[in-house]
Design a protein around this nucleic acid. Structure first.
Lengths: 245, 245
DNA sequence: TCGAAAGGTGTACGGCGTACACCTGGCACT
DNA sequence: AGTGCCAGGTGTACGCCGTACACCTTTCGA
């Protein structure tokens, strides 16, 4: 009853603790069972207490994604771009495998979170330093598509969740957008390079400049070409690993 | 007020009308704004009336997906498997483009709907009659992955929504499952062929027999190989269409 | 004529996200 | 030492959701 030992009054909560508890809850009971009320209960707290640490459920989900994606870690680049990309993507896969809800959440959210952007930037960087042109890298990213995590397609379609208050006209925001873009370009240079290249004839910040249909067919043909090559070689899965010839 | 002209008492509702209204509503206001209440209101009806035509919201969503996917239509097979698959997949893409919510719904539901199975069966059929082995076709389907619509990965993970009541042991259901499987095999022979091949050492009905990691790396390497080939060729998008060589 | 469906209605319940007013304990500053 | 601020936890309440259940009406075949 004395004040000190009474400290069983539970650790004082924090954005980080909330996020970790949310991840654990989603891991344990599935993402659809994750409600603010349930999460609060898990933390021994009244639901509204959570809102002192996350703005709303959407932000909670974003935070959870970032917590998972942030733990991907980067295997050292090395000279071989192919190995670097391969390693990074498989690392991402590994990070997401233990949190099956993450992919679904990423897809359902509109924009990429910072950790997601960082991951993309690293992959794009591997392609660029490996000698692929900006042009080719752009299409290659589209071709990888959800393979890189499950979000590439959408990433270029929506700006990364800048707090654009509605109501005012679209015009006076241009300068502000430009500033945030420059900031973003500093942090994620390769992302910016690609975004800039595909936005040449478009005034929006991260252009709609890419032709969805083209990207889709680019990737589709790449795969179909690969399939045909395998067929010609009489490929079998038991002989896989070493490409014949 | 007489009985005949009083027929403004609205068309008598039907599963089909409900489904069509739901699709229209989702198209117009987005899938997240589609609620049973809102849909009922749109139809000039009390919410519970819908439940006379669909079992619940999940079945409504399935029905909507089937309505969209069912309208894909099959361009004639032709001798060239590559063109056939390409045409079919692009047709699917076209069908889904005007219903952006469909992909998301398909991914969020657990099992494939009949129309989905039919589409898959057609694509698999093109590969098989084109000369790809069952083995290769299997991996190729995984490689196409979400490219074929957005669902291939999950399709083999869960049985297609058979009403498996919980509570009883897993044993006495075997015969019943076998029957439904045979029925399914008749309707979707190519799907069955693949399912059978990848389930050789597994007693579940549609086996967990495939190695996710292998499938993932198969597709990834296929793409990376393609990227490298393009890099070597100095590929540019402006010269695309005719593969340089 | 009648009884049984089939189909639309009304009410109600439990759960959700969250707005808003409130309390409270510890800390900075006088 | 006193005081006022404020970060952080609380309680209540609102409007939405899906849907169980009992009810009423219309229609139609026997």
């Amino acid at each position: 009853m004395a004040q000190p030992t009474d400290a069983a009054r539970r650790a004082p909560l924090s954005r980080d603790r909330v996020l970790r508890a949310a991840v654990a809850l989603a891991d344990g009971t599935g993402i659809e069972a994750l409600s603010m009320r349930r999460l609060a209960q898990e933390l021994g707290v009244v639901p509204m207490a959570l809102y002192k640490h996350v703005a709303n459920k959407e932000e909670l989900l974003d935070g959870m994604v970032d917590a998972v994606v942030g733990g991907i870690g980067s295997p050292d680049p090395g000279p071989d771009w192919r190995a670097a990309v391969r390693g990074r993507i498989l690392a991402a896969r590994e990070a997401l495998r233990s949190h099956p809800w993450a992919l679904q959440v990423i897809r359902s959210r509109s924009g990429p979170t910072p950790a997601l952007l960082a991951h993309m930037d690293a992959v794009i960087g591997s392609f660029r330093t490996g000698g692929l042109s900006v042009d080719l890298t752009h299409h290659v990213m589209h071709a990888l598509g959800s393979r890189i995590l499950g979000f590439t397609q959408e990433v270029f379609d929506a700006p990364p969740a800048t707090a654009t208050a509605p109501g005012t006209g679209p015009d006076p925001r241009a300068a502000e957008q430009d500033a945030t873009f420059r900031q973003l370009a500093e942090r994620y240079p390769y992302v910016a390079e690609l975004a800039g290249a595909s936005a040449h004839d478009d005034d929006s910040v991260v252009g709609q400049g890419c032709d969805d249909q083209f990207e889709f067919e680019f990737a589709l043909d790449l795969l179909l070409d690969g399939f045909e090559r395998l067929r010609q070689q009489g490929w079998t899965s038991s002989a896989a690993g070493g490409r014949a010839d």
